[in-house]
Design a protein around this nucleic acid. Structure first.
Lengths: 144, 144
DNA sequence: AGTTAACGGTTGATTTTGTAACTAACAACG
DNA sequence: CGTTGTTAGTTACAAAATCAACCGTTAACT
C-alpha cells in the first residue's frame, strides 16, 4: 500500500523459488515423461551414479532429503530394475544400494541431458555471472 | 562411477532448489508457526499488501501460481479474516480481493520480517555478488 | 546377560499439491 | 434472441509430500 520500496521479486526466498521452478521445468519433462520418474527418483539415481554404492542414509545426508522420500524413491527405482539392495553383514541395519546396468544406462542418458540443460540455462549469462551465481547459491544452500 | 567432472552441486536445477529451500526455511517458521499460514497464503497476502486490491487472476499472472492454489489460499485467508471479497458489478465474474485491517497488520509484520530475513541472507555475500545474484535469478526466472 | 536407548529403514495417516472437470457470467456471431 | 466460445473461479479426485509411529538391529550401560 504505502510505498516502501520492497518488491516481491527482490525477496530472495521468493525469487529463488521462481528461478528454481523455471529451471527445473524442462528437465522435469525429461525424467517424468521419458523415464517415468519423480524428482526424488532422479536424485537418488544421480547420487548412486555419481558416487557409487551407498546407503539410503548416506544419500539423505548428501541431499538433505527426508528419509521417507528416499525410502519410497528407492522402492520405485528398485521396481523399475534400476537399482538393487544388499544387506550389510557387518551391520544388518544398513542396506547398500547400487545401480543395475539399466540404472547406469538411465543415469548416463539423464546426466548427459542434465549437462546440456545446465549449459542452456547459463547461456543467457556471462561466464562471470554464472560463476558468481554458483558460488552465491552454494553459500545460500549452506554448502560451504 | 567414471569421473566425468559433473557434480550434482553444479547442476543448476538441483543447486537452485537447495538454495531456495534453505533460504525459505527460517521465514517459513515465521509464517507457519506464528501466523498459521501456508506458502501460497503469504504470497497472496504479500501481493495484496504490496499492490493493493486485485483479483485472483491478477495474482496468478504476477506470481505464476496456479489458480487452484490461489483459490484455496484466498479461502484460507478469508476464513482468517485477513481479506474480503467484492464482486465486480461491471463484470460479475471478477472478484476483487482486499486486505482487512488484520490482513494489513499481518502483512506489515511479515514484510518487516521478510526484509530482515533477506538482509541476513545476503549478509554473507559481497554487494556485487548479491547484485549479480539477483540479476541472474531474475533472468532464470524468466522475468526480463 | 538384561534393560534401555539409538539407528536404519519402512509404513500409515494426514495434509498439500496437481489435474480435470465443472458452474456461472459474459461476448460474439448468426 | 440462441448457440458457441471464452473467462473467472471452484470443486472433486488422484498424486505426492509430510509427520508420527513403528519394526528390526546394534550399542551402551548396569
Amino acid at each position: 500500500m504505502e510505498n516502501d520500496s520492497f518488491e516481491l521479486q527482490d525477496f530472495l526466498p521468493y525469487l529463488l523459488n521462481q528461478a528454481a521452478e523455471a529451471a527445473s521445468l524442462s528437465f522435469q519433462r525429461v525424467y517424468r515423461d521419458r523415464f517415468g520418474m519423480l524428482r526424488t527418483e532422479w536424485r537418488v539415481l544421480f547420487h548412486l551414479g555419481l558416487y557409487g554404492r551407498m546407503t539410503a542414509t548416506d544419500i539423505g545426508q548428501r541431499s538433505r532429503m527426508h528419509k521417507t522420500k528416499i525410502s519410497r524413491a528407492v522402492t520405485a527405482l528398485e521396481s523399475k530394475r534400476f537399482l538393487t539392495r544388499a544387506r550389510d553383514d557387518a551391520d544388518r541395519r544398513n542396506e547398500f544400494l547400487s545401480l543395475t546396468m539399466a540404472g547406469e544406462a538411465a543415469y548416463r542418458d539423464l546426466s548427459a541431458i542434465a549437462r546440456a540443460h545446465d549449459a542452456a540455462l547459463v547461456a543467457g549469462l556471462s561466464a562471470d555471472q554464472a560463476a558468481v551465481l554458483r558460488v552465491a547459491l552454494k553459500r545460500l544452500a549452506g554448502r560451504k
